[in-house]
Amino acid sequence: MSSLVPVFSWLDPSAWPSPGALAVAALALVAAYAIFTLVGFGSAMVAAGPLAAVLPVARVIPLLALLDCAGAAGRGWRQRAHIDRGQLRRLVPAMVIGQILGIVLLGRLPAAWMAGVLGGFILTYGLWGLAAPRPPALLLRWGPLCGLIGGVFGGLFGSGGFLYAAYLSRQPLARESFRATQAVLMGLSTGWRVLLCAATGLVDPLLLGLALLAVPAMLLGTWLGHHLDLRLSKERFLRLLNGALVAAGLGLLARVLVA
C-alpha cells in the first residue's frame, strides 16, 4: 500500500511545494547533470539538497540513482568504441568487492565519523590536484586499490565515482576514453545501487513516474555539459574536476559539523 501513497497530497494545496521550490529543484537537476556529464560524478552533491525540499528524502537517493544509471549507461553505449577495457579489468572486480564491503560496514561504523573521513580525503585530493598544474600519473597497479576504495565509499555513501574519475584523469587517456570508461564504471556502480533500492522496496511505480518527470531536466543538463565540454582544454577540465572534488569534500564536512 505504501507505494500507492502519493508523494504530495494533491487534494491539499497547502501540501504542494511552492513554484519557486519546484523551479529550484529543476534547475538543480540541470546543473547536476551538466556537471555529471563534464566530470563523471557529482549529481547528488548538486541536486540532493534542492530535491529534498520538494520530495521525501527516502525518494531522493533512489531517484538520483535511477537517473545516474540511465545517463551513464546511455553515454557508455554511445561511446563504447572509446572504452578502455584494460582499465575496466583493473577497476571493476575491486569495485564490486569494495561495494560489498561498504554495505557490510554500513551498519557497523559511525556514519558521522566516516563522512568526515571521506570529506577530508576528497578535499585533500582536490586541493592537491589544484595545486599541481601537471599532476603526476598514477601507476596502473594503483587501479585495483582505487577501485576497492571507491567501491567501499559507494557502498557506504553512494558516492565513489569521484575516485574513479580522479584515477582515470591521471592516466594517459584521450578525453573520449576517459568519458566512456568513467560512464561504464558509474553505470555499473549506480546500477548496483538501483538493485539494492529495488530489493528494499524503494523503487516502485511512483518513483519511476518521478524519474520520467525528471528526464527532460537531465537531458537538458547532459546537452549543456556536452557543449561546455567541447570548449574545455585538458587543463581547464582538470581544474573543474578538482574544483568539484573540493566542493564535494567541503559539503560533506559541512554536513558533519552541522549534524
Rank of each mutant, 00 (worst) to 15 (best):
M1F: 08
S2H: 10
S3P: 12
S3L: 13
V5Y: 08
V5F: 02
W10D: 12
S14F: 11
W16F: 14
W16T: 09
A23T: 12
A28D: 06
L29H: 06
A31Q: 14
A31H: 08
I35Q: 08
G40N: 15
F41A: 07
A48V: 13
G49H: 06
V54R: 05
V54Q: 05
V54F: 10
L55M: 12
V60I: 07
I61W: 03
I61F: 11
L64Q: 04
L64T: 02
A65T: 06
A65Y: 04
L66M: 13
G74M: 06
G74Y: 00
R78N: 10
R80T: 01
H82T: 11
R85M: 13
Q87V: 15
Q87K: 12
L88F: 00
M95P: 01
I97Q: 01
I97D: 15
G98L: 06
G98V: 09
L101D: 09
L101N: 08
I103S: 12
V104I: 14
L105C: 04
R108D: 12
P110R: 00
P110Y: 00
A112L: 11
W113A: 14
M114P: 04
M114I: 08
M114L: 13
G119R: 09
F121L: 09
F121Y: 09
G126Y: 01
G126P: 04
W128R: 14
W128P: 03
L130G: 06
A131W: 05
R134V: 14
R134G: 07
R134D: 14
R134M: 10
P135D: 04
L139W: 12
G143L: 01
P144I: 14
I149E: 04
G150D: 13
G151L: 01
L156V: 10
S159I: 15
G160E: 03
G160S: 02
G160T: 09
L163E: 08
L163Y: 05
A165Y: 03
A166W: 09
L168P: 00
R170N: 12
Q171E: 10
P172Y: 12
L173M: 09
E176I: 03
S177M: 06
V184G: 05
V184H: 00
M186P: 03
L188F: 00
T190A: 11
G191M: 11
W192F: 13
R193E: 10
L195C: 00
L196Q: 07
A198C: 10
T200A: 11
G201I: 00
D204H: 05
P205R: 00
L208Q: 01
A211T: 04
V215C: 02
M218Y: 00
L220G: 07
L220A: 11
L224A: 09
G225E: 05
H226I: 07
L230M: 07
S233Y: 08
K234R: 14
E235R: 15
R236Y: 15
L238M: 08
L241N: 01
G243M: 08
A244T: 12
L245S: 05
L252T: 02
L252W: 06
V256G: 00
L257V: 08
